[in-house]
């Protein structure tokens, strides 16, 4: 009797696990087919920071309420990924045309010691003077923000002065209410990014009406 009970229990657990795996696999597939970029809705926390903008103003996530945000972690001395990504983001805001009014690109520096608001201002306006905003702040605030979004980042002083800053190459996309929605990388095409952003902008309008 006990053996039978144990066997049926093992069958039930087996079925439960396989069922759960199926559900998760199916949900992963459907979410992939509808968006081009990786969907992260509900998995990453709401945008929350208090930093200084490139114009020297204290800003928080609420400052950009109503905008679709593209957040990128980098630093102005970065030679490889950052300029490429910033140029790409500028290209995308161009592609979006008038819709880009509702979009802001947040370039969060990982090197706050060297990247003062003035340096950041000069840097971001080179790429996109209208939609790009440079953000800096204390080391702790920036580290907390990267940690919140699971972006790889080791501050220079902790490892060695000579090494480059390790950082993530992800573009974190938030909807107009500050909810993390999508993750893009350099592997995603400009068109895919543009299409998903248009879709996000359209749904954001729908919410507001």
């Amino acid at each position: 009797m006990d053996k039978r009970a144990a066997r049926s229990l093992s069958l039930i657990t087996g079925r439960f696990i396989s069922g759960l795996m199926m559900v998760l696999a199916v949900s992963a597939c459907t979410s992939r087919s509808s968006w081009h970029l990786e969907q992260v809705t509900g998995h990453l926390p709401e945008l929350n920071f208090s930093l200084t903008s490139d114009t020297g103003q204290a800003v928080t996530a609420e400052t950009y309420d109503g905008h679709v945000l593209l957040m990128y972690f980098g630093f102005t001395h970065c030679e490889a990924e950052c300029p490429v990504s910033m140029a790409r983001l500028a290209r995308i805001t161009q592609l979006l045309g008038s819709d880009a009014q509702q979009v802001r690109v947040l370039f969060v520096t990982l090197d706050p010691e060297r990247d003062t608001p003035q340096v950041l201002h000069r840097y971001v306006t080179q790429f996109d003077p209208v939609h790009a905003v440079g953000l800096t702040g204390s080391k702790e605030d920036i580290e907390a923000l990267t940690k919140q979004y699971r972006a790889a980042y080791r501050p220079r002083s902790k490892i060695s002065e000579s090494r480059d800053i390790m950082h993530s190459d992800a573009i974190y996309i938030f909807d107009s209410r500050g909810q993390a929605r999508l993750l893009a990388t350099s592997a995603d095409s400009d068109e895919n990014l543009e299409q998903d952003l248009r879709r996000l902008l359209a749904s954001a309008d729908g919410i507001r009406q």
Partner: peptide, 12 residues
């Protein structure tokens, strides 16, 4: 597992 590329690897 592209997540490590997306969020950045710890060891360069």
């Amino acid at each position: 597992y592209p997540i490590y590329t997306i969020c950045g690897r710890a060891i360069g």
